[in-house]
Amino acid sequence: MKNIFTFLLTFLLAGMLGNTYAQQRTISGKVTSSEDGSGLPGVNITVKGTSAGTVSDADGSYRLSVPADATTLVFSFIGFRKAEVLIGNRTEVNVTLLVDTRQLNEVVVTSFGIQKEKKELGYAVQEVKGQEIAETNRPNFVTALQGRIAGVSIGTTSGMAGASSQIVLRGGSSLGANNQPLFVIDGVPVDNTTKSEGFLLTDTPNRISDYTNRIADIDPNDIENITVLKGPAASALYGIDAANGAIIITTKKGRKGSVRIDYSNNFTIENATRFPEIQTKFANGSWVNNVPTTNRNTLSTWGAERPAGEPTFNNVRNFFRTGFMQNQVVVTM
């Protein structure tokens, strides 16, 4: 009886183990390059829809245990196009990966429209895409650079519409001279100051009137990208005018091929939310012999207490209305 029980238990375990092995199968093969046919090491091979995977060895060979119901292997490697291959009933799957010619090296514009690969530069640069600036929907794109460039300080003369914005890279270098970087638009240097406007936000011309900084005339939707050069690198390319750095703006241009039209539309609604407190208990007036007298032409002192039920007006609050702005942009390339 004991022998029969042992035989049945052994038979059951063997059946379960065989079923487990039947649920897995091993796929092997080699991954090669389409350029020279050499094996590619370090290629990621995964079973589509699962976490099972492996990497190819030094000569491009691989070996992977996959579920019995696996249908597709995914091969991916930097610089090559991803490939998805059906397994079928095969146990050996060889793959040739195509070079991805669509992957472009990161290119920046340095001086006078000259383009160089970023890895070839011997100095640090920062780049901001024009789309990031346009998405902020700010009329003055200089204010949109805040928080997108390291070491930048941006100040505005006021919170009014059309207020000037000034930018300083890595702090000011002069107490009385201009601390702003040089702006270069498609190779043409542009001054960001305006006539009769001071270099400092506290200068008298800036407090009396505001003519808006000239770079604000650029439509953010026309900007392709912005490259920022700091320190000696800017001076070496643009001279003493760029001693405080240089901001190089490349605008959008037409491209070979089919015509492309970009349209964007945005709405802005603004309301003033904070107003100064106004007293309505006392009327305008003055004090004569320690007696308050009402004088409607006096604004500097208080007069007698207003009669009950006398209407009062908050002219500051009544002056403001709901602001509405609509901006529609059509760009043809």
Rank of each mutant, 00 (worst) to 15 (best):
E270P: 09
N271A: 13
S173T: 08
L97A: 03
N315C: 01
N284W: 03
F11Y: 14
A150P: 02
A68D: 10
T227A: 02
D191S: 15
K30Y: 08
A234V: 00
V31K: 01
L97T: 06
G285H: 08
A68S: 10
G130L: 01
S34V: 09
S111F: 08
E135D: 09
I185E: 06
T280Y: 14
E92L: 14
N192G: 14
N206T: 11
G151E: 04
N225Q: 03
V259Y: 10
S56N: 01
R306P: 06
N19P: 05
I249N: 00
N314P: 09
I133F: 00
N265L: 08
E305F: 05
L13I: 11
R63P: 07
R170H: 09
T202K: 08
V99Q: 11
R81Q: 13
P41E: 10
N290D: 14
P307F: 10
N44G: 12
L104C: 05
K119N: 10
A124P: 04
I269T: 12
G162F: 05
V188P: 11
R102E: 14
A150W: 07
S165E: 01
N94L: 14
T110V: 11
S165F: 02
P292K: 03
I208S: 03
V152H: 03
S209R: 11
T71K: 15
L200M: 12
V85E: 01
E277P: 02
A83R: 05
N213R: 07
F324V: 15
W287S: 10
I248E: 04
Y211K: 15
S165D: 06
L9D: 04
G18V: 13
K48R: 09
L121H: 08
K281D: 02
T32A: 14
D262T: 00
I261Y: 15
N221H: 04
G122Q: 11
R170Y: 11
A246Q: 02
R274G: 04
V128W: 03
A83D: 05
T250W: 03
V74M: 13
G172C: 07
N179P: 03
G171F: 10
N318A: 07
G231D: 04
F275W: 02
